[in-house]
Design a protein around this nucleic acid. Structure first.
Length: 845
RNA sequence: GGGCGGUUAGCUCAGUUGGUUAGAGCGCUACAUUGACAUUGUAGAGGUCACUGGUUCGAGUCCAGUACCGCCCACCA
């Protein structure tokens, strides 16, 4: 091939969409996503992919996670580890059920109309469809995950794991059925865990109600219909005489009986200082009821309507009842006043419907009960795993958040009344006995032929995902995968999910396996728009990752998510940023294009070639420094820093200086090929597609993804500062030309003397700065540039401001050096540097 | 109420254990087609590092406090 043919072969600009699909196919075909096919003796390195909800499409948050996880996996694979990145999806109980219910509503039907079986079929179809979309999106990101091990929280194996875990916990007394106040979502028609309730600040009213001898302040007057107690502060003189009494209170004709008691928790100064206690519909009041032995009257039912205990308001919805009741209280003159009030409304985290606390018979995980044989509670187990340093959380500050959450954790309500989920493995027989079994067959055997009815409820979706790192490896079977690949290395996920998922995984895995689920938790932030707003459908500011991939390429999108992001910190993303990295990827393309055109033969160079010139020594030193730094950064999870350094080396050192010098000095085939090879290996975890494509020019029958991560070759740091002399000299002369309005094509006469650079470099400097190098001095005053002197017929215009700046600087340095304290206390190196700086500065004037 | 994070160039962000006149990318200005790249090159302008005190020979960096922005947890009836 001659030069023109080579230029033809490689297009001027890199077009990602032309290559990405083929490259991904080649990776898949190689089988190297599967650790079993990796020809290495390295230790396993495992990441469980956080399973996206099987409800639809991936957003930028997922794309970010995939970019970081694939970066870690590709890096470790290149380092020779047996890497497994295990992908999967989550059935996402409530989220998925809600989504399908919405679709049904649009079709004018409902899950009730379809019935349980038909509804579940419908959801399954929906899930299969969105799993397809998700697969495609994960692939488009370039994810090198092992599809042969893909799992789904609702597949057979994982369902078995869920039942096994439930049974073990039940037998250990860590799962129990109890009647307690739970969070109820009237729309989802299900309970919620405490952390599945979120809060919205709202403008509310605080009603002051004349309540027998008291005035009671409340934001929910209707609940007073079911009050069974009145609480005052222990030290409140005003109400001392009532303590212990049972009073009958008339509320607009509705009679209630309340017991008056005193408790320290009551704030004398809030509202009227008196609380009407409604044990059935407030978690705190429920605690009061247990402590002071109050009656519990259920007032609100699961649909959010009042029960018979609501008297004449029976059948009304909560808000209707409130309105009617307040009107009646006004008629009887029992509303003393109504104040504006801001409070936090509890709402369902999935559908934002106000949550109703109500008493209900549910299944719970006991987090404060000692585990048989361990003398520790689940909570303590989870706290210890992190406190002991066994599990590291990055960034560290989130460990505090983690502890705080666990310390405040109450028993975890795990039963849900929705249909889409793992059915609770509990059967009841005619005698009301509870049978816990792996499946119906086993239950029947245990029941001795009695007729059985399975619990209608399903399990919290987080129950199954808490088993994710090991259920996906085959547990409860004692598989080779479980032995080889657990505990996993890193859990990479968003900090917003630390409670829901990370904490529960640690808790459950420590309990069930007696192992940590992972060594390090790497938490990424939320991807926001340019203004810092969360991307959302309602704001319409969302960016579709696939659209960006099509426009700029996967590598560019990945870089834009990696560079400029720190663990735990939110990340702003916008098109200009992605476009910037598209330009960089194109730069890599053109660097390779130039090298492939310039060299006489493309071949793999394994050993560092010897250097012939200062420029060679310099670029090789820079390359080796880069390899050292990138390796160190990646080992410290500093992905952004590593990416920036690769960017800087490629563009500002290799392309801008060394390639230009190579055009002048020539004869550098081996060095160019050697640098390019190493550069694309260390860039591969960041930009897998372009680097693999470039590698194909080196070798058509191997893949870059399984090459060896380079180690740095010893280099001399002094070369880097020597070369800086050359760069500064060139830049300064170019600047002189520009300031004197000399066209780039004019080559003014110039003579240069340097203490550092020999004649070869002065000739090089002259070519790079485009001047005509003379072999003797011109009758002019020379211009000092660092340690060099330049005789050139150009004026160095030093502005008044510049002169002043230099004068100030000199003064500052002189003061420092005149200060005895500085001379006494500062390290010798600093004093030496300061003196040097002063000499340099004086030269400039 | 408790806790956490942020505040550095017009914008988005780096700044490791305190030690050059504080950096990068984008944007901006001027010039340019030189053996890959206009998704380019060359040169340049642009910052009292939120504020106030303190420690230190020396503070963007450490300490205390203030202001503003953001987040999390708890939750008041």
């Amino acid at each position: 091939m001659d030069r023109n043919d080579k230029i033809e072969a490689l297009a001027k600009a890199y077009e990602p969409s032309k290559y990405e699909k083929d490259i991904y196919s080649a990776w898949l075909k190689s089988g190297f996503f599967n650790p079993d096919n990796l020809n290495t003796a390295g230790q396993p390195y495992v990441i469980s992919m956080p399973p996206p909800n099987a409800t639809g499409t991936l957003h930028l948050g997922h794309a970010a996670g995939l970019a970081y996880e694939d970066l870690m996996i590709r890096y470790q694979r290149l380092k020779g580890r047996k890497t497994l990145w295990l992908p999967g999806t989550d059935h996402a109980a409530i989220a998925t059920q809600n989504k399908v219910e919405k679709i049904l509503a649009q079709e004018g039907t409902s899950r009730q109309a379809l019935g349980r079986e038909n509804f579940l079929t419908r959801v399954k179809d929906f899930v299969i469809q969105s799993q397809g979309t998700i697969h495609e999106q994960i692939r488009r990101m370039g994810s090198s995950c092992d599809w042969s091990r893909e799992r789904y929280t609702f597949d057979e194996g994982l369902s078995r794991a869920v039942n096994e875990a439930f049974i073990k916990m039940y037998n250990d007394g860590l799962i129990y059925r109890g009647n307690r106040i739970v969070n109820w979502c009237p729309r989802c028609q299900s309970t919620l865990a405490d952390d599945e309730v979120s809060y919205q600040e709202q403008d509310a009213k605080l009603y002051y109600i004349k309540y027998g001898p008291f005035v009671v302040a409340t934001t929910r007057p209707e609940t007073k219909l079911a009050d069974t107690g009145v609480a005052v502060n222990t030290d409140d003189e005003r109400y001392k005489k009532y303590i212990g009494q049972e009073l009958e209170i008339d509320l607009a004709g509705h009679k209630i009986k309340v017991k008056v008691f005193a408790d320290k928790a009551v704030d004398k100064d809030f509202g009227s200082g008196v609380i009407g206690v409604t044990p059935a519909h407030s978690a705190i009041d429920y605690e009061f009821a247990k402590k002071y032995n109050l009656k519990i009257i259920k007032l609100i039912d699961e649909t959010g309507k009042l029960l018979t205990s609501g008297g004449k308001y029976q059948g009304l919805k909560v808000l209707e009842a409130r309105e009617a009741f307040v009107k009646d209280l006004e008629l009887t003159g029992q509303i003393e006043k109504i104040e504006d009030f801001k409070n936090n409304l509890s709402v369902c985290y999935r559908c934002e419907t106000p949550v109703e606390p109500l008493p209900s018979e549910q299944w719970f995980v006991a987090v404060d009960k000692k585990i048989p044989g361990k003398n520790k509670t689940l909570k303590e187990l989870a706290i210890e795993a992190v406190k002991s340093g066994d599990i590291k959380i990055l960034p560290e500050r989130f460990a505090k958040v983690y502890f705080n959450w666990l310390e405040n954790l109450h028993d975890w309500c795990i039963s849900r009344q929705i249909w889409w989920g793992h059915r609770i493995p509990v059967w009841y027989d005619q005698e009301g006995k509870i049978i816990v079994a792996h499946d119906e067959q086993e239950a029947l055997t245990k029941a001795n032929g009695q007729k059985l009815r399975q619990d209608e409820d399903t399990l919290d979706t987080w129950f199954s995902s808490s088993l994710w790192t090991f259920s996906t490896l085959g547990w409860p079977a004692k598989t080779a995968d479980l032995k080889n690949f657990h505990p996993t290395a890193v859990m990479e996920t968003g900090y917003d999910i630390i409670f829901f998922w990370v904490a529960r995984m640690i808790l459950m895995t420590e309990y069930i396996l007696g192992q940590k689920p992972f060594e390090t938790v790497y938490l990424h932030g939320i991807v926001r728009d340019k203004e810092g707003l969360k991307m959302s459908k309602s704001l319409g500011n969302g960016i579709d990752p696939i659209e960006m991939i099509e426009k700029f390429g996967t590598d560019a999108l990945r870089l834009s998510l990696i560079i400029g992001s720190a663990p735990g910190a939110d990340l702003r993303l916008y098109e200009e940023k992605i476009a910037g990295y598209r330009n960089f990827v194109n730069k890599l393309w053109n660097i390779s294009r130039y090298i492939f055109i310039a060299v006489s033969e493309v071949k793999i160079i394994d050993k560092q070639p010897s250097s012939k010139t200062l420029a060679d020594r310099w670029i090789l030193a820079e390359l080796n420094k880069l390899i050292e730094q990138v390796t160190a950064d990646l080992d410290k999870f500093n992905f952004s820093g590593a990416g920036e350094k690769i960017y800087d080396f490629s563009w500002n050192k290799l392309a801008d200086w060394y390639l230009e010098i190579s055009k002048i000095e020539g004869n550098k085939d081996d060095i160019l090929l050697y640098i390019l090879q190493r550069l694309i290996i260390i860039s591969h975890p960041f930009t897998p597609y372009i680097t693999e494509l470039i590698w194909q020019e080196f070798s058509r029958d191997s893949l870059l993804m399984v090459q060896n991560w380079p180690t740095s070759v010893k280099f001399d740091d002094a070369v880097i500062s020597d070369f800086a002399e050359l760069r500064e000299l060139v830049t300064a002369i170019r600047n002189l030309k520009a300031e004197n309005k000399i066209a780039p094509n004019d080559f003014p006469d110039c003579y240069i003397e340097s203490k550092i650079l020999d004649n070869n470099y002065l000739a090089l400097a002259a070519k790079l700065s485009r001047v005509n190098l003379l072999d003797k001095k011109i009758a002019l005053e020379p211009i000092a540039i660092n340690s060099s002197q330049v005789w050139i017929n150009l004026k160095k215009e030093t502005s008044v401001k510049e002169k002043q700046d230099i004068a100030n600087y000199i003064e500052l340095l002189e003061q420092k050096l005149a200060d005895d304290k500085f001379l006494q206390n500062a390290p010798a190196k600093i004093i030496e540097d300061t003196k040097k700086k002063l000499t340099e500065a004086r030269k400039k004037i």
